[in-house]
């Protein structure tokens, strides 16, 4: 389920998803720690960290598919729509999706090492 790769919404959609994911992560962590904090001694391997890692992988995966779809649409072989404006939008969007994917994944990396609530 992706919008047409030539729609300008793609220019920002990836980062909007990143932002929502960030809010979810930060909010979820706060609420998780407020209501069901794992023991500080458990280190990093707690349900909170694991859950965030799993969701991060899903978000990243989705963003990568979008990036791929935009990229493919912009390649010269799909010449039907190859106007400069369309190419501009789809190529830039592909890069935005890619950046968002990387950024979404990066967010959870410290969770590998740090315990969640202290």
């Amino acid at each position: 389920m992706t919008p047409s790769p030539f729609h300008p919404i793609n220019l920002v959609l990836g980062l909007i998803i990143w932002a929502l994911w960030f809010v979810l992560l930060y909010g979820g962590l706060s609420i998780g720690c407020a209501f069901a904090p794992p023991d500080a001694g458990d280190g990093a391997w707690t349900w909170i960290n694991a859950a965030s890692l799993v969701v991060a992988l899903m978000v990243t995966g989705y963003l990568l598919t979008c990036a791929y779809a935009c990229w493919k649409a912009s390649s010269p072989s799909s010449a039907a729509k190859a106007q400069p404006l369309n190419t501009f939008i789809s190529k830039t969007s592909a890069a935005v999706y890619l950046v968002s994917a990387v950024a979404s994944l990066m967010l959870v990396l410290p969770g590998v090492r740090l315990p969640p609530c202290v």
């Binding site: 500080a40 001694g41 410290p110 090492r113 740090l114 315990p115 202290v118």
Partner: peptide
């Protein structure tokens, strides 16, 4: 700098 930073931060936690 993260390779530096995260372990250094870990030390400052008031863990037992």
């Amino acid at each position: 700098i993260l390779a530096f930073g995260v372990p250094a931060g870990h030390q400052m936690l008031p863990l037992p």
